[in-house]
Design a binder for these strands. Sequence first.
DNA 1: TTGTATGCGTTATCAG
DNA 2: CTGATAACGCATACAA
Lengths: 341, 341
Amino acid sequence: MADSTGNDNGTLRQIAERAGVHVSTVSRVLRREEPAGGWSAAALRVLAVAQEMGYRPNLVASSLRTRRSRTIGLVMPRLTDFVVSAICQAIESAARYSGYHAMLTTPPDDMGAQMESVDYLLSRQVEGIIVTSLHRDDTVFSYRMAHLPVPVVATNRHVGPEIPAVVGDDFNGGYLATEYLLKLGHSRIGIVAGPRHASTAYDRLLGYRKALADQAKPIDEALIIHTDFEAEGGVVGTHSLLSLADPPTAIFAVNDTAAIGVMGAARQRGLSIPNDLSLVGYNDIPIVAQLPIPLTTIHSDLNNMGAAAVQSLLAAIDSGKPQAKVLPVSLVVRSSATAHA
Amino acid sequence: MADSTGNDNGTLRQIAERAGVHVSTVSRVLRREEPAGGWSAAALRVLAVAQEMGYRPNLVASSLRTRRSRTIGLVMPRLTDFVVSAICQAIESAARYSGYHAMLTTPPDDMGAQMESVDYLLSRQVEGIIVTSLHRDDTVFSYRMAHLPVPVVATNRHVGPEIPAVVGDDFNGGYLATEYLLKLGHSRIGIVAGPRHASTAYDRLLGYRKALADQAKPIDEALIIHTDFEAEGGVVGTHSLLSLADPPTAIFAVNDTAAIGVMGAARQRGLSIPNDLSLVGYNDIPIVAQLPIPLTTIHSDLNNMGAAAVQSLLAAIDSGKPQAKVLPVSLVVRSSATAHA
DNA sequence: TTGTATGCGTTATCAG
DNA sequence: CTGATAACGCATACAA
């Protein structure tokens, strides 16, 4: 092996030598479509030699020279969460469609680690960055993110207005879920509210509060349990809620995975869903439609979110300031929630 | 913005000018630990200027010069599958730990698209490649993959011996699952067998066959249904199985997501798990422990798999040929399978 | 320790 | 259309 970077399928120089032309000629020939008058004799030799050698352009060298990497950087902690990986895949696909490539990092979900990833991506000369896991409460990081030398788009979660965001309408989603449970006659509705630092969770909680307020229902802070986004968090949160003196008759879990945890906890307590406890989740990840008790949940279009984030970022790379966007969500009624007696 | 690649936090040259030294001095100072005798006056100026400018090294330029990218390429279709994203995250973390970075591509799960990703990664000068979605039946692609200019490690799925693989013991896993159902008294055991092209699915099926053969049970090919890995596949497969004249009393789904689909189909038919139908899954993804009916399944250590794949690849980058490895799996008994009357 | 010179592979500019 | 030349930012062998 010539070196560790595997560039032993030839260089422009080697092609030039074998084809008896100058390097610059090789470069031009390989980057052009066939001219109107057809390839010249020299060009044909170049093409043949390149083909025979299995030439692969060295994008590292080319980026250095052109000062364009055609690459966007992704900072996506919690990749094992379906929501995140679905957005990631959508971004990759949309970027590829536009002639870009995505460079992923999946650091731990704390801002220090995320900042390291950002620095790494910038060192790699990405032309823009998409972040999915901003923390609402970290103003220092937000400030730094808002003053990067390349455009930045937040997706999934957002922070302040300094960082343009492409997100789902979490407030409305939280409102819809809660309103639905209220309409079913529930008045004590617990919420497995996720972490405070995630705007997704936070905004859904705001929607919950608004829906209750709109119906002039009192808000019992004891019914609001902050957890993480994992199934285990749903389990723990549910046990807290159901241990209250006056437990809820319905639970809104701000994400589907936690909702599955709610199901687990209900089972452990011998409670049946939806008869003993109504449940609404959030995201409509594929499996929840197939659960033994199909989950009523809020649907968000993650593909669309990823694509819109890319579109906004690429536009900003060309022009300047990225466009923010809020995508609609909808309630999907299945069978995990039912009318309260 | 100076250019689209955001390198406007200075270059070695700019630092050199402001610090009144030569570029090479800057380069050396910034790459060295503080020497025994402490920094020289010039070095201190360099450090101060670099700090003040917020200098970020241009890794593209440095890779070109050193001919080392310290990057491994990942080809991982189906990133929204928990199994894949968990391996991805484990790889990223293990690579980082060893001073490497992972460059991810997540093309469609066909070999043409995967080959394009490989070419791209090679153009990006990766020092090695990890692939998670090889197809058993594509010998052309396997041949090309085995003759790349950089080391290749397969993980999750494997093909022939030409491509070293770090995989779970799928054969044994399939055997354990089937053996368990046999011990529970089931003799007609259906299998939602996944796609033929995936070695994971295929080997688990082989384990199933062996377990039946070891108990001198006949193998009814009608009980073997090939599907995809999605929940929906489990639904469809289960309906086929349960429509047989002599339907199975137990089902082994070769992955947990499909197993959830089995649950969905059972519900649609008014069948209760495990009373009317026993079920065993595969992978032990986190949510299945929290389902209303906790899933009995085969546990595989995905973190370990990713780490071992990286270890094998990095060793090969230094030495030559990657090491193959088969990781143990274990049966996790929960409540989705019970004794047959 | 520091400066000088050179080149990694590619592309852009300019002249012929 | 083609060739010569320089430069992208960085790292290293060598000389001082």
